[in-house]
Design a protein around this nucleic acid. Structure first.
Lengths: 208, 208
DNA sequence: GAAAAATGAATGAATAGTCATTCATTTTAT
DNA sequence: ATAAAATGAATGACTATTCATTCATTTTTC
């Protein structure tokens, strides 16, 4: 996920240029929304000229799709790294993944604005919906497996892994919305407490 | 919040016409997103002519702002009605309000698409952000008061009303996102279980 | 090793299309 | 007949896309 280096204005690999333009697109979407993002502005944000975006991405639609893919992949790679490095128990992994969503590098208004911009168009643009849905499914599968293990491990009764998964992933998405809409009153510690409080309440043996 | 009746094509009160156009705008946003919503399409959706929207709303910006206000007011009136009619205990009111968010009339993809469309532009369009923030604050105040009463009533220790409020409102927002993005796998009962499971875990004396 | 040719990336002016907005005209209600 | 409301063609601004030209770098030739 490292952003390829851009050497000079005329010499840069195709891939590096695409990365540079995707980064510019992310900035534009965050500042002006998808509706307010124009090809010229993306080019100018990247310090390049008018036609450059059509040269590297066929069309605006394509640029936006690739940008969504990049954002989703960036998140996914952080998610996988966190999953791998945390542990050893499933409860440790679950907590680490929840905290990832609230880390300043992930839960940052500029990045959240991009996610919400795509979600906001998802019903109108089926490709966005399909892509978001696919990534969500992967996410839920991992969280679901961890919950199952925790439930089995703790012998919890009358708790359904899918329900807990839905509750947890919904909570973090909703906390993102709060951060986006009410940045003044949003408090990272309260967000963490909300998640942790839920985990403690549902899985007391693991999170007390 | 009743949608004013439109009698004939040429005789309709100014207010009725505005309502009619706002309804058309909601349909357009749901179908094509904010970016894809044009003044002509709104007019045509309403069965009226080109210039009509500029006649009744000064500009597109104004139309969108008024549409957001309408959507927020519609929700608010349902919220207040629910708050009033439920009870008697704060736990009954809280549960009723949570279930309101998951009712088919509220948690419906077409309506959710509109909310998310505005949220998706909120960072880029400060008027959207301010308005959403203001309505959110009212919501949180009511939920917060109910939680405080429940905590006091049950003598719950080490539970902070604000944290629970944030957790609950986030959860419902996140469940809305799931409904929007993954309608195929979304299950209203699981959503209800997620909310109810949280309430039971946090306020066992009230929700067992 | 230097000059010439080729390569491929970037530029930015031109094009075609879309859209919000305006307003002179038409329609309707009273 | 008059006022209010609606119409829809016209306008002007904006934007995605194209493409002929420019430029820096690399390769080839002698």
């Amino acid at each position: 996920m490292a952003v390829a280096e851009v050497k000079s204005n005329r010499t840069a690999s195709k891939e590096a240029r695409r990365q540079q333009l995707i980064q510019a697109t992310i900035k534009c979407i965050s500042k002006r929304g998808i509706g307010g993002t124009t090809m010229s502005e993306v080019a100018s944000e990247a310090g390049l000229s008018q036609g450059i975006v059509n040269l590297h991405f066929k069309s605006k639609d394509n640029l936006l799709n690739e940008t969504l893919r990049w954002v989703a992949e960036e998140y996914k790679s952080q998610f996988e790294k966190t999953l791998e490095k945390s542990g050893p128990g499933p409860e440790d992994k679950l907590l680490a993944l929840m905290e990832l969503d609230l880390r300043p590098s992930v839960c940052d208004r500029h990045k959240l604005a991009v996610w919400f911009a795509f979600w906001g168009e998802a019903k109108a643009v089926p490709t966005y919906q399909r892509m978001c849905d696919a990534y969500d499914r992967e996410y839920d599968e991992v969280i679901g497996r961890l919950c199952e293990q925790i439930i089995k491990d703790g012998g919890y009764q009358a708790i359904d892994a899918r329900t807990v998964t839905e509750a947890l992933s919904s909570m973090t998405d909703g906390l993102w919305l709060s951060c986006l809409i009410s940045p003044k009153s949003w408090d990272r510690q309260i967000a963490r407490d909300a998640v942790h409080g839920y985990l403690r309440a549902v899985f007391p043996k693991h999170f007390e």
